[in-house]
Design a protein around this nucleic acid. Structure first.
Lengths: 225, 225
DNA sequence: AAAAATGTATGACAAATATCATATTTTGAT
DNA sequence: ATCAAAATATGATATTTGTCATACATTTTT
């Protein structure tokens, strides 16, 4: 059982507001998990009974649509918390969380978090602000989905992926999504996504190196959006 | 200056948690407005400095997209509060609020609400739950925008409008949206919206009576979605 | 009441996107 | 290392949706 006090990612989440005492209590009741790429942390409809703190690795939050396609709503990085909304609403998860890379996460039981929540004003304020950010992000995202073309959404998403998760040494996107997952982010058919990538490749906006993607001219891409 | 204590719509919002004392204070600092149909309550980017309580009338929350079209994110009914996210995030409004009917609203200054927020735990919990509901709604809405066809979204929206705002005596939708606004809700071009309405009209899913819309077979419509 | 402005409707067409088929490449299991 | 399965790629085609033009209806202004 490692000490939460010394955990670096905690500093990036709402948990940074916890005091020494609370951190000790959390260290005692938390459970650490390793999640392999492709495995779920929780699924849509599941009762989560606590929140997850992402220590390492990236996961996708997605929802299965009636047409059988999985729409990715958000990608979540180390330092972020999962399951805050469910905890506050006291509802099952609205989205599935699946690892895009091998992950390390800590589970903190609902009872404990709720205690911090009512006792520690700064913590609850942090959680609230995070949810407010998510709401703003979701509203903006919705407008993009409704008003922009697939090509625009693809260009935007590629830029977002580079800005948020960075590049490998060879300049390709560090985060590795399958074509299907990328299609799930921009909300289109996998074939359409692949076709548009080919097109952007031919017109030297990007370079496709196997399954990897390298942005060649971010400004040119930005002009597409 | 009317008494908040006796205001009925308060019972439907987070404000129901306020005690007598707080209600008296609120009654003293609030400002009442009447807003005519088509007028804004606030605009995207505006610093709101407080929240609005909708006493009467319906308004739309929308965001201007880069393509010049106004995407409607949500419709807001009496009893709901506006500007909660901006207040908590301490940011300008992310959406514009424009009256769809003549409205009566009360403005409560930020300073006052924040006081309730820190003093009255039930109130802050209510606000938080509302924002969580909004987040869930926005995520679901986003998935629909990304994965469903315009026809499906139109059918869904028509059902939502009848279920949420009811019917007139002649069976037509009580809430009166222009074709452009309806298009703004489903995220499509006005002409496409009009064309699909015509189509639904011809195939007796709905009946168009002037600018009004009457749902003829809700179950048949539901099967479209 | 007439004229102008706005909103609704429809046709014609172009562009965007989905679907289905199939080929090729890559990955994973044995 | 080989085979099967999965992922990626591309062509052909159908469908959906957007755009532009124009007509008609309704509302507002003068």
């Amino acid at each position: 059982m490692s000490k939460c006090e010394q955990c670096i990612v905690r500093q990036f989440s709402s948990l940074k507001a916890l005091n020494k005492d609370e951190l000790l209590r959390m260290a005692e009741c938390k459970t650490s998990y390793t999640i392999k790429k492709g495995e779920p942390i929780f699924e849509e409809g599941e009762v989560t009974n606590g929140i997850y703190c992402i220590k390492d690795g990236v996961c996708k939050l997605s929802k299965l649509s009636d047409n059988g396609k999985d729409q990715i709503v958000k990608l979540v990085k180390p330092g972020e918390l999962l399951g805050q909304r469910s905890m506050i609403s006291d509802e099952p998860a609205n989205l599935s969380a699946v690892a895009l890379e091998d992950m390390e996460v800590c589970f903190i039981p609902r009872s404990e978090v709720m205690q911090f929540f009512t006792q520690n004003n700064q913590f609850s304020m942090n959680v609230m602000k995070t949810i407010c950010e998510d709401l703003k992000g979701a509203d903006d995202h919705m407008v993009n989905m409704a008003q922009k073309t697939v090509r625009q959404r693809l260009a935007e998403t590629l830029i977002y992926l580079e800005d948020t998760f960075g590049k490998n040494d060879d300049g390709t996107l560090r985060i590795q999504l399958s074509r299907e997952e990328l299609a799930g982010m921009i909300g289109t058919a996998t074939e359409s996504c692949i076709r548009l990538l080919s097109e952007l490749n031919k017109s030297t906006y990007i370079e496709l190196i196997g399954k990897k993607i390298k942005l060649l001219d971010k400004n040119k891409l930005k002009r597409l959006t």
